[in-house]
Design a protein around this nucleic acid. Structure first.
Length: 934
RNA sequence: GCUCAGAUGGUGGAACUGGUAGACACGCAGGACUUAAAAUCCUGUUCCCGUAAACGGAGUGCGGGUUCGAUUCCCGCUCUGAGUACCA
């Protein structure tokens, strides 16, 4: 029979499902291998052809590892809490659970069609109560922990309480809020419970605090920094503003250093590691306190008598000629003198009006205002003006900088603009036209530092500042604590209730705290989150928290749930975690670089600290598959003399001769840029009567690469491809498209080549009448050579994730075997196993036809490569003169270099090329090349 | 601006430690089969000169360098894509 991909694929997909072929074993003598995909959010649009790219690669890898004798865990699930289902619920009243359920069904159908070897018995959904029970449980562990800097790990909050009871706050080195109290053990014990609790909240790894958040009024929720792009929400593109709110936060900053160091221990793409390093943003420097000058010091200033700054160039402290604080800085009001009040107020108003975008676009304009107050340089007592300016950011460091115009270009421009002094501090500094940030040379105008170099100077300043208590060496991180709350419905409820204004965890035995029903998915009239509408939803002791967890909560630990997906006692058993340990290979997009992949590492490190998991890093090796973009096609509508569109369309090659306007056309009615005119006429009713100006009898469409989206008519649905060519063709074609990590536009042109290949492969096992038949004769040398070439190639390619090149090699192997008229059983059977990870359905069918015992080939042993079959006794040496190849010459590989040289020079054709000249030098590289220098 | 990745035929791409540039596939051109089309098969296909073959020349973004030999290594530049940004 001809290659009937539809019957074959359906048959084997059913077989795998019925027999649980891909169930991973929990106990096995085999070595383990964990292959994970980033689980999808099940959107209403279903999968387009770009989504499965990474899944296909990981599936090939998982299937290959099974053939290689590994116990493979290859699961799939859904990140099913999220905004789109809720937006849809707001518009239609449909419960998000229903929408989500329907979308998951579509996803599952589409995924099944592609023939993935997922162990579906371990499926997880983040929105399912038996899953989010454990997300809530992990939240509770974070609430019950604090970060001990001395031990450099998270510890139980009861240990902290014990310390307070015995020693008070002395000797505690914690990552905590800035303003913690100092107390003795007796003072602690004397505190009322509510005071103790509110103090402990300053230490917990998840805590409440008033913070400035990215508030998106259109979505009615706060967003994380990585969900905001250029002042607009990543989802929906709505404007985002800054707002102060009481929020749950996660003390991820406690792990900043470990998150940074850990990057050196994992096999991830360098650009992605670099993005995480930048996000963490470690900078080493010093913090310095500048005392505020008393005479100008405003009366309301009581808690602070200094301004603290962070700098990476403490050595330039004698070059400080003014100080700049952010317009939002808490001391602005009290520092402003009555004479300057009008200026400052005007400046602050102007700053507030500027959006984030303007502020960025406007980076070159210098602006600022003088407060009228002064600080003193702690080292020489010099009086220094305090200014405010929006180039200083409230959110970084202390929101204040010491300005050194001779060494910093922004300070330089500011000084020039406002006529402030610029003092050189290094002998070789050139500050005629711009600042010079050099570290070479020695210091001048710098008191005790004069004559020292950078290294000695920096050390001297830090020592001096420390001795007078005015400053110290400090490491600063750009990363902020992560906000952990959304004012939305469709997320995990936070397992907390409030009593007397303080948060309390619910009983662990009451988990999961179920998401209640509400009448509408909108905020309440009083502006509370939708959960405020839930009737009778109340803890006996107080009010539940009304915000839900953010989207990244459920995805920050899901790979552990797959290890033991149905456990109702623990998030996963100790036994399962000790067996599976971590993810060996993780494949997903780089858009999660600073979100999911950072939060997951944070939670993993925390779970390690509290001894719940065994590995410090969750994902040993990570690969970013490239994005598949859309490839839009255009037709060109002729514009008449009055500038109106006509119903005539001009072929792309001729548009320069006419006045036209481009129009997106459905890529599914275009083949190799040639428009199918019949289908085009049916594309829209008004095209029924369309006319065409053709070139060479064809209508050629224009092409552009854009994002894949419905409105651009460039979405290619995998269902259509599978319907036409089958899943095996789709899988191989997606791999054939190019290197996995590279982004590329989808182009269905060329898929025929892959389909033809599979048919040719099928034909090896069949005669001209399409009857199955293989021979049991001894394989020939040439057949074995072709086979073992592909065995080695596939092993090498898969290990280095070069899937596109192995598809080419399969084509070469099948072409060779076809030329050899090979129908040898042993050769073909081995080839079936080698190809099966790429094209599993056709290979299963042929495996059965070959007469193997009923069942799947998924666990057959991968053929063993034997180099003996590839040994050659001759090689066609390229003979080159001055590096230019002139001819090839067959020479025995047993000859040594001297003999080869003699053999080549004796050859008549070589002599003809040499034209009577004697080569100055002959280079012979055995088995590679002969080069003669003339 | 900074960081990272990349640039190879008409197209997607291959060439793994410096050793025959353009594998494999698409497209295109020509041919076979067919009443015809589709399908299938065969041949050619980097560019230039040449009727064709032989032969000759150029060629991996640009300009240099190292080397017997460079797509590969080094220096400088151009362009494209991604990330990030008054980060003190």
């Amino acid at each position: 029979m001809d290659y009937q991909f539809k019957d074959i694929e359906q048959k084997w997909q059913q077989f795998w499902a019925q027999h649980g072929t891909f169930k991973a074993e929990d106990k096995s003598a085999k070595p383990k291998y964990y292959v994970l995909d980033m689980f999808p959010y099940p959107s209403g649009a279903g999968l387009h052809v770009g989504h499965p790219l990474g899944y296909i690669a990981s599936d090939i890898f998982a299937r290959y590892k099974r053939l290689k004798g590994f116990n493979v865990l290859h699961p799939m699930g859904y990140d099913s809490f999220g905004l789109p289902a809720e937006q849809y619920a707001i518009q239609t009243g449909q419960h998000p659970a229903i929408t989500t359920e329907a979308n998951i069904a579509t996803y599952r159908r589409q995924l099944d069609q592609i023939g993935f070897s997922f162990d579906w018995s371990r499926e997880v959904r983040t929105s399912s109560p038996d899953y989010y029970k454990w997300t809530q449980w992990i939240f509770m562990q974070l609430f019950n922990s604090w970060y001990n800097k001395d031990a450099d790990k998270a510890e139980s909050i009861t240990k902290l309480v014990e310390h307070f009871e015995q020693n008070g706050s002395a000797g505690i080195n914690a990552v905590c809020d800035e303003e913690v109290l100092s107390f003795t053990a007796d003072e602690w014990k004397a505190m009322p419970n509510s005071a103790q609790q509110s103090e402990l909240l300053k230490y917990r790894l998840t805590y409440l605090r008033e913070s400035t958040v990215n508030w998106c009024p259109a979505l009615g929720t706060v967003l994380a920094n990585d969900e905001v792009k250029d002042g607009f929400s990543e989802r929906g593109g709505y404007p985002v503003e800054q707002k102060k709110m009481m929020q749950w936060s996660m003390r991820i900053t406690a792990y900043a250093e470990r998150l940074l160091q850990g990057l050196d221990t994992i096999d991830w793409p360098e650009p992605l590691k670099e993005m995480q390093r930048n996000w963490i943003g470690k900078s080493t420097g010093a913090s310095v306190k500048f005392p505020i000058e008393k005479t100008t010091h405003h009366s309301s200033l009581t808690t602070h008598n200094y301004i603290e700054v962070f700098t990476t160039r403490i050595d330039t402290i004698f070059g400080v000629t003014f100080l700049v604080i952010a317009p939002e800085h808490e001391l602005v009001a009290s520092l402003t003198t009555p004479e300057q009040k009008a200026d400052i107020d005007a400046y602050i108003t102007a700053t507030k009006k500027k959006s984030e975008l303007d502020r960025m676009a406007d980076a070159k304009t210098v602006s600022g205002a003088f407060t009228g107050s002064y600080v003193l340089n702690p080292l020489n007592g010099e009086k220094i003006q305090i200014w405010i300016a929006d180039y200083v950011l409230a959110g970084y460091g202390t929101g204040a900088v010491m300005a050194v115009p001779s060494g910093d270009q922004r300070d330089y421009l500011f000084a020039k603009h406002f006529n402030l002094p610029i003092v050189p501090i290094i002998d070789i500094q050139n500050i005629e036209t711009e600042a010079d940030p050099t570290k070479e040379g020695t210091y001048i105008n710098s008191d005790f530092m004069n004559g020292l170099d950078y290294k000695a100077g920096t050390a001297a300043v830090i020592a001096k500042l420390e001795s007078i208590g005015a400053g110290k060496a400090k490491v600063n991180f750009r990363m902020r604590d992560a906000i952990f709350g959304r004012q939305r419905y469709w997320g995990e409820p936070v397992p907390v209730y409030f009593k007397d204004g303080l948060p309390h965890l619910i009983e662990e035995s009451h988990l999961p705290l179920l998401l209640p029903e509400v009448d509408k998915y909108l905020p309440t009239e009083s502006g509370e989150p939708p959960l405020g509408r839930a009737e009778g939803w109340k803890h006996p002791e107080g009010e539940y928290e009304l915000s839900t967890m953010p989207g990244w909560a459920g995805s920050s630990w899901y790979w552990y749930r797959y290890m033991d997906a149905h456990n109702d006692k623990e998030f996963a058993s100790r036994e399962a975690i000790e067996y599976w340990k971590d993810v060996d290979l993780y494949i997903g997009g780089s858009e999660h670089a600073t979100g999911h992949l950072l939060y997951s590492r944070f939670w993993n490190k925390f779970l390690k600290d509290i001894d719940q998991v065994v590995e410090e890093e969750p994902f040993k090796k990570l690969i970013n598959q490239g994005m598949i973009q859309g490839r839009s096609n255009f037709v060109y509508r002729l514009i008449d003399e009055e500038g109106r569109g006509t119903n005539t369309f001009v072929s792309h090659g001729l548009i320069k001769e006419y006045k036209t306007s481009p129009l997106h056309v459905d890529v599914n009615i275009v083949e190799n840029e040639v428009l199918n005119i019949e289908k085009f006429k049916k594309f829209r009713p008004e095209f029924e009567t369309a006319e065409f100006i053709l070139e060479s009898g064809k209508y050629i469409c224009g092409v552009e690469v854009e994002k894949m989206s419905k409105s651009k008519f460039n979405v290619v649905n995998p269902d259509d491809i599978i319907n036409r060519y089958g899943a095996d063709t789709l899988r191989m074609y997606e791999m054939f498209l190019g290197p996995l990590e590279q982004s590329k536009p989808w182009n269905t042109n060329g898929i025929e080549g892959v389909f033809k290949f599979l048919r040719k492969f099928w034909r090896l096992f069949h005669n001209d009448a399409w009857e199955f038949g293989v021979s049991n004769a001894e394989p020939s040398k040439a057949e074995l050579k072709a086979l073992h070439k592909i065995i080695r190639k596939v092993e090498e390619d898969i290990e280095r994730f070069s899937f596109n090149t192995s598809v080419s090699s399969f084509m070469i192997a099948v072409n060779e075997l076809t030329d050899l008229k090979c129908n040898n059983r042993t050769v073909l059977q081995d080839l079936v196993i080698v190809l099966s990870s790429y094209a599993p359905h056709i290979c299963e069918e042929l495996w059965t036809l070959l007469g193997n015992p009923a069942g799947s080939l998924s666990y057959a042993p991968f053929p063993k490569f034997n180099s003996a079959y590839l040994v050659e006794d001759e090689f066609a040496y390229p003979i080159s003169i001055n590096g230019k190849t002139k001819m090839n010459l067959n020479i025995s590989l047993s000859l040594d270099i001297k003999d080869i040289e003699a053999f080549v020079l004796a050859n008549a054709d070589v002599q003809r090329y040499l034209d009577g000249k004697t080569p100055k030098k002959v280079i012979v590289v055995k088995g590679r090349i002969v080069n003669m220098v003339v």
